[in-house]
Simulated assay, not measured.
Amino acid sequence: MKTKLLLLALIMQSTTSVFSQSKTVEYKDGNQVLSGISVAPSKSLKNKPGILILPAWMGIDDHAKDSANRLAAMGYTTFVADIYGVDQRPKDYSEAGKKAGYFKKNIKEYQTRIQLAYDQLIKQGANPDDIVVMGYCFGGTGAIECARTNMKVKGIVSFHGGLGRDETRTIDAITPKVLVLHGADDPYESKEEIEKFQTEMRTAKADWQMVYYANAVHSFTDKNAGNDNSKGAAYNEKAEKRSWEAMLTFLKEVL
């Protein structure tokens, strides 16, 4: 019993040491104050790779923070971006839809907010030559935008993100490697939009992968999304675990 208690204490101490390195970081976009979350690993991997995390449409949530902590525990410097601002966080899904919709329509403003968060990740000690951007839902859309603008990153990971693109935009060559993790039954991405995205990746001569998860709809990594697929967004434990492992494999490859 004493051995078990000692082991539990050591585990808790180790977990605390990782979590204690989490801090709030304020920065600005003009007059708008932004507040992201930085998590430094207790022991960095070689070359100090960093991961920028773009949260879903509700803004910084437990899901994004949990991902930041898990990755920091593996040795990555992580930063959760604040896209909306400290006084602009949505109060409900309706408000989140409007705010996320604004940035999707005003894509350059979204790109600016992502770039500012990227700069903060570097300031927190991440190696600018070894960065990956990952995002969930609305954040997955943002991650793909990082590929389209050729942000100076090694890789892009989109979990159930939006794939659409304004067709008036030119398609430039894409340098970062791209991993798209997608629910096979996601009702928010039409067959036509998926085909256009894949054509875009080919035209851009991107190094891309797209993985489909059976019986998974939108938000399949979010434990707060419920379990009713008929609503279009629901948690899927198997898809969550598989997609996380796919991302870890991708990180090992590109970083």
Rank of each mutant, 00 (worst) to 15 (best):
Q111A: 15
M58F: 13
I11P: 06
T149G: 09
R89C: 04
L6P: 01
H182G: 03
D82M: 07
Y102W: 10
G75L: 09
V18R: 10
A234H: 00
L179G: 08
Q88L: 13
E145Y: 09
K123S: 14
G142H: 03
E240I: 07
D61A: 11
S243Q: 06
P49S: 13
C137L: 08
T221C: 10
E109H: 09
K4E: 12
A143H: 10
M210H: 06
N227R: 02
S20Q: 09
V33H: 05
G125M: 05
I51K: 04
D119N: 15
F197D: 03
K154M: 13
W57I: 05
E195Q: 11
M74P: 00
D130P: 00
Q209L: 07
I131L: 10
I107R: 11
G162T: 14
I37A: 06
D119Y: 04
T77F: 11
G162R: 00
A184G: 01
G85E: 05
G155H: 03
Y188N: 13
N69G: 15
F197S: 00
R113S: 10
R242Q: 12
F250M: 09
A225N: 02
V86P: 00
E237D: 13
I131T: 05
D228H: 02
M58T: 11
Y213L: 08
G139R: 06
E192G: 08
R89A: 09
T149H: 14
A73I: 10
Y235E: 06
E167V: 13
E253Q: 13
N224A: 15
E200W: 02
I11V: 15
V132C: 06
K238D: 12
L181Q: 04
A204K: 05
K238S: 12
D82N: 15
A204E: 04
R202W: 00
A64C: 12
L45M: 15
L54H: 05
D66F: 14
A81G: 09
I114P: 03
A246H: 11
I194C: 02
Y118E: 06
L7A: 10
Y136I: 04
G155V: 07
K43I: 12
T221M: 10
L248Y: 13
F197N: 00
G97L: 11
F79W: 10
V217M: 04
K152V: 04
E193C: 06
Q111S: 12
I122S: 09
F79N: 04
T199I: 04
E240N: 15
N106F: 05
P49V: 11
A9E: 07
I194H: 00
T203E: 07
K238W: 04
T77P: 00
G59R: 00
P49C: 09
L54W: 02
H182Q: 15
L7D: 14
T249M: 08
L163I: 14
Q198E: 13
L255K: 08
I194M: 14
S38G: 13
T3C: 01
I83W: 02
R242H: 07
A214N: 12
S158A: 15
T149Y: 11
Y84E: 03
S20K: 13
N150Q: 13
R70C: 02
D186Y: 01
E109A: 14
Y213H: 05
F79V: 11
P128Q: 11
T170M: 01
N150V: 14
S14N: 15
L45N: 06
W57Y: 12
I122T: 08
M151W: 03
Q124W: 03
A40Y: 01
G161F: 02
V132M: 07
P128N: 10
G226V: 01
Q21N: 15
F79M: 10
K252T: 14
